[in-house]
Design a binder for these strands. Structure first.
Length: 244
DNA sequence: CGGTTTTGACCGGCGC
DNA sequence: GCGCCGGTCAAAACCG
């Protein structure tokens, strides 16, 4: 180790510190801006609900009731994959049987439809489609709840890809990368770091995750504010580098 | 041979 | 009523 090496390292540290300060300021600015927008949205939403209730028919209330049921059963998972891999395979530990594929209007990438095939009676369905904005991101939408336990755990890190953004949402619609703004202020969003499994173990092994601990803490700090989390989720997903 | 995937046909909801 | 669109069906092909 010579002096030149240390000088170079010190310079890098300074650059990183400056960048951290800049990001912190940007973070605060965005948080404030998002809080303001969130308040405005909630006001608009309350007004819209009040108007709808005033004009609402029984048919509308039936529709709402159906939507309420759907809300409790849906979740969406975003998975970053190798951009060269164009398959729609999401290995989540369950067995799925593909029963259809469609190209939808809003997205040139085909959408694949799956049913859980572990148990014939399992009602869970899954839709998988590539993100229109970033084709390296798979969007898996789960409908319903499994009436059985998972049988297989993903066998390796690569089976579960490098980074998963998990959106446990009570809303059944409009939760997509494009919608990671304030259009769904009640949506709860969490960032799930990659889970590593060893052999047939079903519990994730965190020993090899030390390199990600800083990211985990960073992500945890972001997730405290749901609005802020939603707006930054895409940026964080894109910034986490997969392991060598 | 049994389970899965592919893919065109079909169906139902919705807006005009 | 018609056309569009998303979701599902089902027969054929594929695969281990």
């Amino acid at each position: 180790m010579d002096d030149e090496h240390y000088t170079s390292l010190a310079e890098k540290v300074q650059v990183l510190e400056a960048e951290m300060k800049r990001l912190h300021k940007e973070n605060e600015r965005l948080r404030f801006s998002l809080q303001m927008m969130s308040k405005k949205f909630r006001l608009l939403q309350e007004t819209a609900v009040a108007v709808a209730d005033e004009n609402g028919s029984s048919e509308d209330s039936n529709k709402r009731a159906r939507n309420e049921v759907a809300k409790t059963k849906m979740s969406r998972v975003l998975i970053r994959t190798d951009p060269r891999d164009l398959s729609l395979v999401v290995k989540d530990g369950y067995h799925w049987r593909k029963y259809g594929q469609k190209v939808t209007k809003d997205n040139p990438s085909p959408r694949a439809y799956f049913r859980c095939s572990m148990f014939p009676s399992c009602p869970v369905k899954r839709k998988v489609q590539r993100c229109v904005e970033d084709k390296s991101i798979l969007v898996a939408t789960y409908e319903g709840e499994h009436n059985h336990e998972v049988i297989e755990a993903p066998s390796s890190f690569t089976d579960f890809q490098d980074c998963t953004i998990m959106a446990s949402t009570t809303n059944s619609h409009n939760f997509f990368l494009n919608d990671l703004n304030l259009s769904q202020p009640n949506t709860t969003l969490g960032l799930a770091l990659p889970q590593v499994y060893e052999g047939s173990r079903k519990r994730p092994c965190h020993d090899s995750m030390d390199n990600y601990r800083i990211n985990e803490e960073y992500v945890a700090s972001l997730t405290r504010d749901p609005n802020f989390t939603a707006a930054l989720a895409v940026a964080v997903a894109r910034s986490i580098v997969p392991p060598p």
